[in-house]
Simulated assay, not measured.
Amino acid sequence: MPDDADPICPLCLRPIPREVPQSLHHLIPKLKSGKGGPTVLLHDICHREIHASLTEGQLAQDYSTIAALHSHPRLAKFIAWVSKRPPGFRSRIPGRRRKR
């Protein structure tokens, strides 16, 4: 019997509905020898926040696990905010990155 349940975003712990943009995040960035390494499926909004908050070097050196991402102050604040939104929530702000 196939499992039709929506996957769960490991960052915000909300379901990822099929109609919502999803992103595959390399825990170690491809540019930092993470090609072929472990990946996780995230909401697109969660993935964009990770890359808006951290550089590739920071991701590779200090934030290469979900637990480490949860420990980052800006991401922790984002997770607390987005976890209160419905699973299909999408940002209305255009653009891929915010200024740090």
Results as ranks from 00 to 15, higher is better:
residue 60 A to Y: 03
residue 85 R to G: 03
residue 41 L to W: 04
residue 97 R to T: 15
residue 82 V to D: 06
residue 96 R to H: 07
residue 48 R to E: 14
residue 59 L to P: 08
residue 39 T to I: 02
residue 20 V to I: 13
residue 54 L to C: 12
residue 78 F to T: 12
residue 62 D to A: 02
residue 26 H to G: 05
residue 94 P to Y: 07
residue 42 L to R: 06
residue 57 G to K: 08
residue 94 P to R: 11
residue 62 D to K: 03
residue 79 I to V: 15
residue 35 K to M: 07
residue 76 A to V: 08
residue 61 Q to S: 13
residue 77 K to C: 03
residue 62 D to M: 00
residue 87 P to V: 10
residue 86 P to N: 12
residue 55 T to H: 05
residue 25 H to N: 07
residue 95 G to M: 14
residue 41 L to Q: 09
residue 91 S to D: 13
residue 93 I to C: 04
residue 64 S to W: 01
residue 45 I to R: 15
residue 84 K to F: 01
residue 29 P to M: 05
residue 56 E to K: 09
residue 44 D to C: 02
residue 21 P to T: 00
residue 42 L to C: 10
residue 89 F to P: 04
residue 27 L to H: 00
residue 32 K to W: 01
residue 49 E to P: 05
residue 78 F to C: 07
residue 22 Q to G: 01
residue 39 T to W: 00
residue 78 F to W: 15
residue 23 S to Y: 01
residue 95 G to Y: 14
residue 70 H to V: 02
residue 99 K to N: 15
residue 28 I to D: 00
residue 25 H to V: 05
residue 60 A to Q: 12
residue 90 R to C: 14
residue 32 K to E: 10
residue 37 G to Y: 01
residue 51 H to L: 06
residue 87 P to C: 11
residue 87 P to H: 06
residue 29 P to Q: 08
residue 43 H to P: 05
residue 66 I to M: 02
residue 64 S to N: 13
residue 85 R to E: 14
residue 63 Y to Q: 05
residue 76 A to M: 09
residue 25 H to Y: 07
residue 21 P to K: 02
residue 38 P to C: 01
residue 47 H to P: 06
residue 59 L to T: 04
residue 71 S to Q: 14
residue 69 L to A: 04
residue 95 G to I: 14
residue 43 H to F: 08
residue 37 G to Q: 02
residue 62 D to V: 00
residue 82 V to Y: 04
residue 30 K to V: 13
residue 78 F to D: 08
residue 25 H to W: 03
residue 64 S to P: 01
residue 61 Q to M: 11
residue 33 S to W: 03
residue 52 A to N: 09
residue 53 S to A: 15
residue 84 K to G: 06
residue 92 R to W: 05
residue 77 K to L: 08
residue 41 L to N: 07
residue 45 I to K: 14
residue 45 I to Q: 15
residue 85 R to N: 12
residue 99 K to W: 14
residue 22 Q to N: 00
residue 30 K to Q: 11
residue 67 A to E: 15
residue 52 A to S: 15
residue 79 I to A: 07
residue 99 K to C: 13
residue 99 K to I: 15
residue 24 L to G: 03
residue 51 H to Y: 06
residue 52 A to D: 11
residue 95 G to D: 13
residue 43 H to W: 08
residue 81 W to S: 08
residue 20 V to M: 12
residue 84 K to T: 14
